[in-house]
Design a protein around this nucleic acid. Structure first.
Length: 213
DNA sequence: GATTGGATCGCCT
DNA sequence: GGCGATCCAATCG
């Protein structure tokens, strides 16, 4: 992990923002959803808020393919909730679930394909104090493990829905050279009943911050 | 207007 | 492995 990367956790955010690195552009997201889900692994998800900036390295994602995917919220047509997926790529799709959690997705492809990638787990990188406060735990491994926990640690709620991930309050930055993602594992998605065996979950093999290794 | 069940989590045994 | 918390969107009438 970090001790082998030559940079301390908190330094990585400075390396990203201080070096003037640009967020991944809209063209990154307007591609095949599975490709985006894979290539988001190893990127840095950064949340800017009045309370501070926090950052985590993406280690686990899931692809939701659109109308032909029964598990995707867009499969049965547009509704107020899923409207963002029917818009352009590179927007946050945030929804409320189980009466107490939010899930964060980023839209992919184009207006004709209402698809998205769910962010399931991060390796905490910077803003550990703020994330710990939001989560009510100091255990780093539990800060961003699972989509509900991740959203809570980043202070994400329905206000984030529809915002741009290129110039909005949540953005993604490319992997750093010292920190390129290794081998990717593929598995069925978690917690769904429709299309339960479709292998659309992606995670970094062996990474201890993955929610379900 | 009412009902149902969910892309979860944490605590219990 | 099981279950309760707790809300709202979607569906049905």
């Amino acid at each position: 992990m970090n001790q082998n990367r030559g940079l301390d956790r908190e330094d990585i955010l400075h390396a990203i923002l201080g070096a003037g690195l640009k967020p991944l552009p809209f063209s990154f997201y307007s591609r095949d959803t599975r490709t985006v889900a894979c290539e988001l692994l190893g990127t840095y998800m950064v949340r800017f808020s009045p309370e501070g900036t926090v950052c985590g390295r993406v280690v686990e994602t899931e692809a939701y393919l659109g109308r032909e995917d029964p598990a995707c919220h867009s499969a049965r047509g547009p509704t107020p909730r899923n409207a963002v997926m029917f818009g352009p790529a590179g927007r946050a799709y945030v929804y409320f679930i189980y009466g107490m959690y939010y899930c964060f997705n980023v839209t992919t492809e184009d207006e004709k394909t209402p698809a998205a990638v769910l962010l399931r787990a991060l390796e905490p990188v910077a803003g550990i104090e703020l994330m710990s406060r939001r989560r009510g735990t100091r255990e780093i491994k539990k800060l961003c493990r699972g989509p509900g926990c991740l959203a809570q640690a980043l202070g994400i709620d329905k206000e984030i829905n529809g915002t741009s991930v290129v110039d909005g309050p949540v953005r993604f930055y490319p992997p750093l050279p010292h920190d390129l993602p290794g081998e990717i594992a593929v598995a069925p998605r978690v917690g769904i009943t429709q299309a339960a065996d479709w292998p659309l979950r992606y995670y970094l093999k062996g990474n201890p911050f993955v929610s379900r290794p």
